[in-house]
Simulated assay, not measured.
Amino acid sequence: MKERADDFQERSKKLQNMNDEELDNYFWELVEKVVDPLVNLAETHTSPSIERSVLLRMGFNSLQAKALVDKIEEENLLSKGAGNVVYKIAKQKNIGIMQAGDALLKGELWDDVEKIFRGGDTSGTSTK
Rank of each mutant, 00 (worst) to 15 (best):
K2S: 15
R4G: 02
A5C: 03
F8I: 13
Q9T: 15
Q9L: 12
S12W: 08
L15D: 12
N17P: 01
N19M: 04
N19F: 04
N19R: 09
D20T: 11
L23M: 12
F27R: 09
F27L: 14
L30Q: 14
E32H: 10
K33G: 07
K33M: 11
V34Q: 13
V35Y: 15
P37T: 08
P37Y: 12
L38Q: 12
V39Y: 11
L41S: 14
T44L: 07
T44E: 15
T46M: 10
S49R: 15
I50G: 05
R52S: 04
R52Y: 08
R52A: 02
R57D: 15
F60S: 04
F60W: 07
N61V: 10
S62Y: 08
S62D: 10
S62K: 15
L63T: 13
L63N: 11
Q64L: 05
K66E: 03
A67P: 05
V69C: 04
K71P: 07
K71D: 11
K71S: 12
K71Y: 05
K71A: 14
I72E: 00
I72V: 10
I72N: 00
E74N: 06
E74R: 12
E75N: 08
N76W: 04
L77Y: 11
S79V: 09
S79N: 06
K80H: 09
G81R: 00
G81D: 08
A82W: 00
G83K: 00
V85P: 00
I89S: 06
A90N: 03
A90S: 10
K91F: 07
I95S: 01
I97C: 02
I97P: 00
I97K: 13
Q99T: 15
Q99Y: 01
G101T: 04
D102W: 05
D102Y: 08
D102P: 01
A103T: 03
A103R: 14
L104Y: 01
K106Q: 15
G107M: 08
E108D: 10
E108N: 09
E108H: 13
L109G: 03
L109V: 05
D111C: 05
D111M: 07
D111I: 08
D112G: 04
G119P: 05
G119M: 03
G119D: 01
G120N: 03
G124F: 02
T125D: 12
T125I: 09
S126H: 11
